[in-house]
Amino acid sequence: MFNKVFVEKDLVNKSHTQDVLKKIRFNELITIDRYDNIFEKVKKPYLQKRDNLNLFLAKKRGEIVKEAPDAYGLGKEKHFYFIHAYNCIYECEYCYLQGYFNSPDIVWFLNHDEIIKKIDGTSKTHPNSWFHAGEFSDSLAVSHFTNEIPTYHEYFKGNSTAKLELRTKSSNTRALESLEPLSNLFVTFSLSPKEVAKSIDKKASPIKQRLKAIKRLHLLGFKIGIHLDPIVIENCWEKSYQELIEDLSNHIPISEISFISIGVVRFTKDVFLQFSKNYPSSNIRTSTFVKSFDNKFRYPKPIRSNALRLVRELLTHYGANPTNIYECME
């Protein structure tokens, strides 16, 4: 799975580190002082994640909890995201990480107690806030290796005013299934029409598997959120979304989804350059794109507003409460 695994020397003898090392496959183990002496020191091409992916087991220093940008979540509460990992094992063509970090190598931060301490401090200053995992990495995909979910579950169980969102494109719900559902824990799944997901959500769980995972967790009593983001306009996209939402409604009553975000595919300039280089034959047809209100590259407003309206109408038609739908980053 990994070529080299770099472990910070202060962590190498910790039991959590050893547990992780036992579960993963790699070619070479190297002990280092600090991950940031190596990670991003050279510009490593993004697509090397396919055949030369390294892993760092490290301690997160500096800013651990960050305020999310506007239009990030539902409601007027404050939204924060916390950083427990950098980079992802999946390879979604539109992923902003390809232009965000200068390396596709993965960093798993293992100082979860310190991360929780920061969440706790922020939560005390800003009660009723949301804390999102999965900004820089999928929050469930490798949770059976990293095994941090019970630690976060424990904290949020005792702090019901703070809300936790675990955002994923995986169907790996093993870590959650043995835990009790919480009123402030939301497991959210990003979905696209199955053919689109097959072509652009490379290596992520197929939509069929994600839908099954949604059903599984919903039946166990977990709160579910859905991200219909990014919407990609391709041939017959309206029909594909109609089928997706109908399929979703066969796995969970749409009215019982806690919130649904909708957003159209978009790129910052850096990500756009990387995307164009990495995926020149992508099904995401960017020749339509214009520089929009926040300098991100998007479909022209008439096209994206039409798409958002149509998806919103479909969702309400299938029973979604309109107040639970929000437009992400629009």
Binding site: N235, R285, S287, T288, Y299, P300, P302, I303
Partner: peptide, 9 residues
């Protein structure tokens, strides 16, 4: 051919 939506727009 490259972008039917934009052409339509």
């Amino acid at each position: 051919f490259s972008s039917p939506e934009f052409h339509q727009l």
